[in-house]
Design a protein around this nucleic acid. Sequence first.
DNA 1: CTTATATATGAACTGCTGCTCATATGATAA
DNA 2: TTATCATATGAGCAGCAGTTCATATATAAG
Lengths: 122, 122
Amino acid sequence: MLENIDDGCLEQCFHPEVVESVRRDMLGSVPADELAQLFKVLGDNTRIRILDALYRSELCVCDLTALLCMNQSAVSHQLRVLRDARIVKSRKYGKKVLYSLDDEHISGLVRMGSEHVRELKK
Amino acid sequence: MLENIDDGCLEQCFHPEVVESVRRDMLGSVPADELAQLFKVLGDNTRIRILDALYRSELCVCDLTALLCMNQSAVSHQLRVLRDARIVKSRKYGKKVLYSLDDEHISGLVRMGSEHVRELKK
DNA sequence: CTTATATATGAACTGCTGCTCATATGATAA
DNA sequence: TTATCATATGAGCAGCAGTTCATATATAAG
């Protein structure tokens, strides 16, 4: 009896037992969203370069602007995205604002991602 | 003398030595792009849920369609993105196509990402 | 063969994202 | 105070990404 399934998403399915078992174990919709959101923040060339730079040293906005050869406004906008995601933190130092990585998980993710990319080349 | 720097991105910079050192160590533009591309593929709610499901079992398209309560076409389009990124692989079985994860790095990334998300809640 | 089923794909639409430009804020120096 | 430097932010725009719809392909069954 599969009538106890509360939504109508299984009509055409051919492995109802497997699907039910997977459905039970899967991430909830909220955690899946949060995870996707984290990867979305990492999924931009500018932000990856910022993180790669901050992984090596604490830097101010104008250093990053120079390093990336980009508009200061563009860099600030991306730093805001990273700050909002709590991936990066900042502190004031005179007129400047110094940025650094907020979390050691992030460098782990970047390292593991790089490994995957390297593997694909083989 | 900083005139040997080949581009004009350093005019306003106030830590030229640090910037130069970081610049030397940073990822090249191609690897940074590939890494961002990988995270971009992971940075979508639908694709995360597909990967989460496939992490638990090999599944056909119609199973995934039922699990995600989505249009079959939408699922196929996202599977193509995952296939192109070599994150997922497929094999034919009769009329069906069975999908599974292609790489163990991916589950590692998802696990580490989940950990980061969990940490943020505290 | 024809029909039905499973999946893939192209076109079109819509919403989102990242950049630029202009400007605001905030801090230091004169 | 005013002027200058460093950063942040809002508006506007252009390109991209995810969905739907319609249809194509492929396999199996009759």
